[in-house]
Structure formats: C-alpha cells, structure tokens
Amino acid sequence: MFGKQIVKKILFFSLFLALFFVMYVKFFKKNEIVETEVQTSTDTLYNSNIIENVNYVSKDNDGNEYIINAYQGEIDYSNSNIIYLTNVKALIKLNNSENITITSNYGKYNSENYDTIFSKNVIINYMDNKITGEYLDFSLERNSLIISRDIIYTNLENILKADVLEMDIKTKDTKIFMYEDTKKVNIRNKDSYGNN
C-alpha cells in the first residue's frame, strides 16, 4: 500500500513537471515571437519617415514665392519641422526681379520658417550669373543667401573666387570676402582667364 502511494506521487510529480515544461515552452516562446514582431513593426515605423518626391511651396508677406523639390526627404525624429533632403532643386520667384534657381546634393529644410541649408555641389543661377560652392544658408526670414566654401562666381565678363558671398535677397546688395585678412578675392576677366 505504501508503495502504491509513492508511485502515485511520482506519477503526479512527473505529470506536473511535464505540464510545467509544456506551459513554459508554449508561453515563453510566444513572448519571444511577440518581441520579434514588435521589433519588426518598430523597424517599419523607422522607415516610414522617408518621403519620396518632396515638394514644398511657401510665400512671404511681399508675395515672393519659394519652391523646393527633392528626390527624397527624411523627417528628423527630434524635430518634425526639420526635413533632410537629397537631390535638391529650389526656385525663388521674386516679385520685382528675376528668378533664382538653386541645386545641391543635400539639404536641410525647416518647414516652420522655410530656412534651408544646401550642401555639396551647390549651384545658384541668377540672370547671367552662376555661383558654385559647397554650403549655402538660405533664409526668407532674414532675406539672405550666404554661400561659402570654394566659391566660384561667374558672369558674362568675369570669374571670381572667394571664401564667402552674402546677398540680401530683396536689395541684391552683395558682400564677397575671404576668411583670412591676408588673402584677397581673386577676380579675372573671362577673356584673360584661359591665357594665364
């Protein structure tokens, strides 16, 4: 009789252990799957901040229009007003002046105040003027355009090399200068440029 009770207890204990093992495997394996699914959906959310064929249009109080297009944009998680752009093209339509076009490889656009940083292979075309550089800070709010790093400014007659060019968008007043006082802005006539 005593032996039967021991066998029952061993069977009961074995059954309890088997049941515990099955429940452990079933529930803990499911939790691992759920965590993987959550991770996958987080990855999907991360990729969803990329926008294809970006287009923004804005106007200032004077009626000047600013149109910016990009192949791709990525919204900054820490500030949703900031969009990082790739293959950027911008058009500035000024009321009382010629249009200004800007292209660059990259950009950083603020959708709140329309300020834009253009970088890498920046090209500005305005009337018969072409300005190239590596960095452009454009602001409708400040009415300014500041291009720097390896500036080459060409018009019908001259080629100019400098470190920085600042332009007031409304008045077209322009300052061209070098960072170091000992260096001078290099200006050459186009006709004599190829001869030297």
Rank of each mutant, 00 (worst) to 15 (best):
I6S: 11
K8M: 12
F12N: 07
L15V: 14
F16I: 09
L17Y: 10
L17W: 09
A18H: 04
F20E: 05
F21Y: 10
K26Y: 13
K30E: 14
N31E: 12
E32I: 05
N53S: 14
S58F: 13
K59R: 05
D60C: 15
I67M: 11
I68P: 04
A70M: 09
Y71W: 11
I75L: 09
N79I: 07
I83D: 03
L85T: 09
V88S: 12
K93M: 12
E98G: 08
T101F: 14
I102Y: 08
Y106W: 03
N110W: 09
S111N: 14
N113L: 08
N113F: 06
T116E: 10
V122Q: 08
I123C: 04
D128K: 06
D128H: 08
T132A: 05
E134M: 00
F138A: 04
S139Q: 00
L140G: 02
E141W: 00
N143H: 06
S144P: 00
I147S: 01
S148T: 00
R149W: 02
I151N: 01
T154F: 00
N155D: 05
N158T: 14
L160M: 07
D163R: 01
L165I: 15
D168H: 13
K170F: 02
T171Q: 12
D173Q: 11
K175F: 09
F177S: 12
M178I: 10
D181T: 07
K184F: 07
K184G: 07
I187Q: 01
R188W: 08
K190D: 03
D191L: 10
S192C: 02
N195T: 11
